[in-house]
Amino acid sequence: MEFANTWLPFIYLYGVGGIAFVLGMLLILRTKALRVSFERDKKWLWVLIYGFLFYAGLHATFILLAIGSY
């Protein structure tokens, strides 16, 4: 399978999408919309990071499984 079919979409998705995600995180932290000094907000910070890694991991796993069955 060619690169444009497997890892290129993945890199683009989490590269461009990742920029949007990181900018969003920086914005909510810098404007104090999310305050890490609050226990509840701190938990949300980890949920937000987990969500990003969860989807990246899920997509990567399926790409590896598909390549493995080639």
């Binding site: 399978m1 444009a4 079919n5 497997t6 290129l8 979409p9 993945f10 683009y12 998705l13 461009v16 999408g17 949007a20 899920l58 997509h59 399926f62 790409i63 499984l65 598909a66 390549i67 069955s69 080639y70």
Partner: peptide
């Protein structure tokens, strides 16, 4: 088929179902 198991479409082909177009239309 292995191709049908991939979670993301081909980067820019075919015109009616490609990753990058759908990323901007739907993902963004």
């Amino acid at each position: 088929s292995p191709q049908e198991k991939l979670p993301l479409a081909h980067f820019n082909h075919p015109p009616d179902f490609n990753f990058v177009g759908i990323f901007w239309q739907d993902g963004i």
